[in-house]
Design a protein around this nucleic acid. Structure first.
Ligand code: MN
Ligand code: MN
Ligand code: MN
Ligand code: MN
Lengths: 238, 238
DNA sequence: ATACAATTTTAGGTATGACTAATTCTCGAA
DNA sequence: TTCGAGAATTAGTCATACCTAAAATTGTAT
């Protein structure tokens, strides 16, 4: 069985799907997707990455462009497959949170496995039950079936000045511990933050969580947190 | 990496889990679970079965007893793992049917993949949402967490005489086409059947579906159907 | 222009789990 | 009791996807 041909939405292995998904996610944040960058995010060794990207570049049609020592770029075919996997992942995360009461720190690990095994029918039913959601529990956009993706804030809390008022729109989902910690502080999607103070030299950022109406809490966040929280300037005091 | 030790509820591969599940299912219906029987049900070649059962017999503690040319028997450890996989499978089937509106002919294929990847937490949440169901959409019992299994009817429709009135309590889930066909006839779980006539020499069984109250339909079922439908004698005309 | 350090690729190996083909075993019939 | 058909096992391959160690490449610093 020589499995060297791939059509869009063909049967790929779990490993292949994870590579394509990760490449697309990294393309959005890095100008070049290198072997070592992929190895870090996929938790495998660089030699393994080289082997896999060579296979994906050899597939017909190719899922990605690859030149030795130059990093990789997804082809339209590879990008479409990656978007399908990401749609699965984020839809499942949202379903676990909405329909099954999962906390936002647990959904990623579960979705990581389920994303590879659900059928088109299950994908569609989940989307229907949720009313075709556009965002996952961390504020990441869920690609539509045709592959379009809503833009999200790239403004990290780290970049905000003292005195400004912002709303949380996205939180990196790669650190469950941080997510649980933030939930404990009341920092969730749509939470309003008023920046009280920014200590210099990468010192902590002090902010007030929630409006003055409710019991507002003050907390200090380090760089590890503020780099992973994305915000928009608050329009209209809801 | 020598992965030869297995504790109950340890990480097994998908293939290993499917073998153990299938062995338990076959033990219930056959006095001896042979290599070729397993090969047929797992859709692999006998040589592959020999290899896998030798590995499962060598695992520590062993998942099954195996003597060359003598078939296999699950050990308590193997049985417990098999029950966990079957619990996953049937809970998922029931969830797909109840919560997501799946038809009973589609749930098996989907559950076959999902059963291997859901976490203990997801299993528990699904069970909770469904109110700890005891049966799956085909009337098969869902093993409880402690491994107990409700007994089900082993009386096939084939064994029923003309004139008798029975209720459908279980239908084999291995043939989606048959399930869809039966659904079209109104033959589902708890449907009442009145046997009108039994043609001799394995001829068709004619029966009336549903009570006389509703629009009762007459249909003729061949052996392929009646062997796969299990019934109980109807108590009280509900 | 050269050399070195970091990155990347190649070479070679492991484990899983399937396959085919060849061989061996078992058990019933002669 | 022997024989042979069918069932099962062994032997040898292949594909996937990881790994380590060695070799090659790149770009930067001298
Ligand atoms: Mn994954
Ligand atoms: Mn997410
Ligand atoms: Mn399965
Ligand atoms: Mn079932």
């Amino acid at each position: 069985m020589t499995n060297s041909r791939i059509r869009a939405s063909e049967i790929l292995t779990r490993a292949e799907e994870d590579y394509l998904k990760t490449i697309l996610e990294l393309e959005e944040e890095h100008e070049s997707v290198t072997t070592s960058l992929l190895a870090t995010h996929l938790r495998v060794k660089p030699a393994s990455v080289t082997g896999m990207i060579q296979k994906l570049a050899r597939s017909r049609p190719p899922c990605l462009h690859y030149e030795s020592h130059r990093g990789v770029t997804l082809t339209p075919v590879g990008r479409q497959i990656a978007l399908e996997v990401i749609r699965h992942h984020r839809l499942i995360e949202q379903y676990l949170a909405q329909a099954l009461g999962y906390d936002w720190d647990k959904v990623d690990a579960e979705a990581e496995k389920l994303e590879h095994v659900i059928s088109e029918e299950l994908e569609d039913r989940i989307a229907a039950v949720l009313g075709d959601p556009i965002f996952d529990p961390h504020g990441d956009p869920i690609p539509s079936k045709d592959g379009s993706v809503t833009a999200t804030s790239r403004l990290p809390l780290t970049a905000i000045q003292a005195g400004q008022v912002v709303r949380v729109t996205r939180v990196r989902d790669d650190d469950p511990e941080l997510l649980r910690y933030l939930a404990g502080l009341g920092i969730r999607l749509q939470a309003r933050l008023t920046i009280v103070e920014r200590a210099p030299f990468e010192g902590p950022l002090t902010c007030q969580v929630g409006g003055a109406e409710t019991e507002a809490r003050i907390c200090a966040l380090g760089r590890g947190a503020t780099d992973r929280i994305f915000v928009e300037f608050d329009e209209g005091t809801g």
